[in-house]
Computed example of a mutant assay.
Amino acid sequence: MKQIMVILPLFAVLLLAAVPGFAGDHDGKQNLNTITVEQLAEVPGVGQELAQKIIDARSENGEFVDMDELLDVDGIDNSKLRKLKKHLYLEAASSCNC
């Protein structure tokens, strides 16, 4: 009986984690604050050069707190930003008070 009492809560947690939209599911999007330059270069419309500029901006200014900060990166305009938002999301990568 004790085994069942331990297994049931664990099973419930695993089941909820598999539900889309629960437990941090971001529909395949990647976190802008943790993505690597190589991963970012694979995002449609980005490429190696723009990916490096975005990562450089993150390195120089700290984590992004708003997607609109990407507009400060040379090569990103409103149209490109809308496209990037389909592939990226924002979440603090560290315990910063952003």
Rank of each mutant, 00 (worst) to 15 (best):
E91Q: 14
G45I: 04
L40V: 00
A51Y: 05
V43H: 13
I35A: 03
I7Q: 09
Q48Y: 01
A17E: 07
A51S: 10
T36Q: 10
P20S: 12
L88E: 13
E60W: 00
L32M: 07
A12Y: 00
V73C: 03
A12V: 03
D77H: 01
I55W: 00
R82L: 15
E69C: 07
G62K: 05
L40Q: 05
V19E: 05
I4E: 10
A92Y: 06
A17T: 02
L84H: 11
Y89D: 12
Q48H: 02
L70Y: 08
S79C: 11
E49G: 02
Q30E: 13
L90Q: 14
I54K: 02
I76W: 01
A17D: 05
K2I: 11
I55F: 05
K80R: 07
E63Q: 15
D66C: 11
L84A: 15
S59H: 06
E60Y: 01
V46D: 03
D72F: 01
A57K: 03
V73T: 00
K29G: 06
D68R: 15
C98R: 13
R82G: 11
E42P: 01
A93Q: 07
V37H: 00
M5N: 11
L8E: 02
L10T: 06
A18Q: 09
N97Y: 00
I7F: 13
V37F: 00
V6I: 15
E69A: 11
E91S: 15
M1A: 14
K80I: 09
G62M: 05
V65G: 15
A57H: 08
A41G: 08
S94I: 04
N31D: 14
F22C: 05
E91M: 14
D56N: 05
T34G: 12
H26K: 13
Q30L: 08
L15G: 13
H26Q: 13
S59L: 10
E42T: 12
C98M: 06
G28D: 01
E60D: 10
K80S: 13
E42C: 04
I7L: 15
V46T: 09
P9A: 08
E49F: 01
D66Y: 02
V13I: 12
D56G: 03
E63A: 14
P20C: 11
V37N: 07
D56K: 03
D25G: 07
Q3W: 12
I7E: 09
G62C: 07
L16N: 14
A93T: 10
E42S: 06
G45H: 04
M5T: 12
A92Q: 07
E38M: 06
S79Q: 15
A51W: 01
I7G: 12
A57T: 01
K80T: 09
Q3I: 08
L32E: 08
E63K: 08
L90F: 08
G75A: 07
